[in-house]
Design a protein around this nucleic acid. Structure first.
Lengths: 146, 146
DNA sequence: GGCATATAGTTGTTTATGCAACTATTCAAA
DNA sequence: TTTGAATAGTTGCATAAACAACTATATGCC
């Protein structure tokens, strides 16, 4: 075993793999158990559109921190599911705005309930002020690197 | 805007998307800039093998928190890169042990240095004891959900 | 108005992920 | 010894991610 250690290997694993992956899988499982066929990635797009409908694709890239091709394909699949529609912008012909369908609006309450349930499951035994520290640190990490 | 809010939506986004994604991308970029062609997912396998060589695939699943098909394919690609080899276990014919090649050993120092550099970039301005809180909370989240 | 640069979105490509299903092997109980 | 259940790893399939390259459109400067 050489002298050179990955000094923060445990922190890296924890940040990068364990908690995020565990939450994602649990949430996807909760969706599936509830009979929902959308993926959590698709849901994250809907979530932002519930907060503010008819965003441009570029804006969705910004808000979900994905790159453009990924957003294009996610929206392709959401269109197939008839949960969003693309509407060409009148102000700028390069831009599509992405708008919720009525069907997507019907999903909002139940899926947000499931997401809350998932976070409740995740945060059992976690102190409220510790949560604030986590938010602060992870936000700082994101700001450092984005 | 309905009454039902995703109470911890910000926390979820932070945990699930922002910090983990930002670190992953930065690290991959640092690898690329250094002329390394391995992905960070492949690297995470190597990392565990540097710590303990010749693990079973199942053990790698446990340690990296991925499922079996994902590990199978990651190892397929690492074999193609001649960084690992599968060796059938003598004790149990279901098991492959996954062992480092000499070439993989040569990568250890430089890549761990890059990973440390990446974490340094990520953690600028973060207090040491805050890091301990993050580790504790994310470990708790993982333990709650795994 | 023309040109160079920037930007929105798409396509190509490769890698990765996880659920479902499967095969071969191992283990435990009768 | 036989049988059923459990386990390790693989294959099929669909979704997702991101880099590179591209096309069409917009912007700013001369």
């Amino acid at each position: 075993m050489p002298n050179n250690q990955f000094k923060r290997g445990e922190l890296y694993s924890v940040i990068n793999a364990m908690a995020a992956t565990a939450i994602a899988r649990r949430m996807q499982k909760n969706f599936r158990n509830a009979g929902l066929e959308i993926t959590i990635e698709q849901w994250s797009i809907l979530y932002h559109l519930w907060k503010e409908d008819c965003l441009s694709q570029q804006e969705l890239c910004n808000r979900t921190f994905r790159d453009k091709p990924s957003i294009t394909r996610l929206i392709d699949n959401l269109e197939k599911l008839k949960l969003v529609k693309r509407i060409a912008s009148k102000q700028d012909r390069r831009i599509n705005t992405v708008c919720l369908t009525e069907e997507a609006r019907l999903l909002q309450d139940s899926t947000i309930e499931l997401a809350n349930q998932t976070m409740d499951e995740a945060l059992v035994g976690v102190a409220k002020n510790d949560i604030e520290v986590v938010k602060k640190v992870l936000q700082q990490v994101y700001d450092n690197l984005k």
